[in-house]
C-alpha cells in the first residue's frame, strides 16, 4: 500500500513537471516565431515606420535582432528548467 502511494505521488509529480516543461516550451516557441517569422518577415511592413540605422526595424530583426533573442531564449530556458528539475526533485 505504502509503495503504491509513493508511486502515485511520483507519477503525479512527473506529470506536473512535464506539464510545466511543455508550458515553458510553448511560451518560448511563440517568442521564437514572433521575432523571426513575425518581425523579420511577415510583420515587417507593419514595422517599416520604425527606423534603425538607415533601414527599418524588420530588417534589423531579420539580420541581428532574432539571433540575440534566440540566445536569450535558450539561456532562459536552461536556467528555468534546471530550477524546475530541483523543485520537482527530478535533477540528476
Amino acid at each position: 500500500m505504502a509503495d503504491q502511494t509513493t508511486n502515485t505521488k511520483a507519477a503525479e509529480d512527473g506529470a506536473g513537471y512535464w506539464k510545466a516543461n511543455i508550458r515553458m516550451i510553448q511560451i518560448s516557441l511563440v517568442i521564437w516565431a514572433v521575432v523571426s517569422f513575425g518581425f523579420g518577415i511577415l510583420l515587417r511592413p507593419m514595422l517599416s515606420g520604425i527606423e534603425v540605422g538607415g533601414t527599418d526595424l524588420g530588417f534589423w530583426f531579420a539580420q541581428q535582432g532574432s539571433i540575440l533573442v534566440f540566445l536569450a531564449l535558450i539561456f532562459f530556458y536552461a536556467w528555468r528548467m534546471n530550477k524546475l528539475d530541483k523543485e520537482y526533485g527530478v535533477e540528476e
Binding site: I25, S28, L29, W32, S36, G40, F59, A62, Q63, Q64, S66, I67, F70, L73, I74, Y77, A78
Partner: peptide, 16 residues
C-alpha cells in the same frame, strides 16, 4: 536573411 535566422533559430528547437 533566411540563412541568418534559419541557421541560428534551429538551436532554439534543438535546446528545447
Amino acid at each position: 536573411s533566411s540563412f541568418l535566422m534559419g541557421w541560428t533559430g534551429g538551436y532554439v528547437l534543438l535546446a528545447l
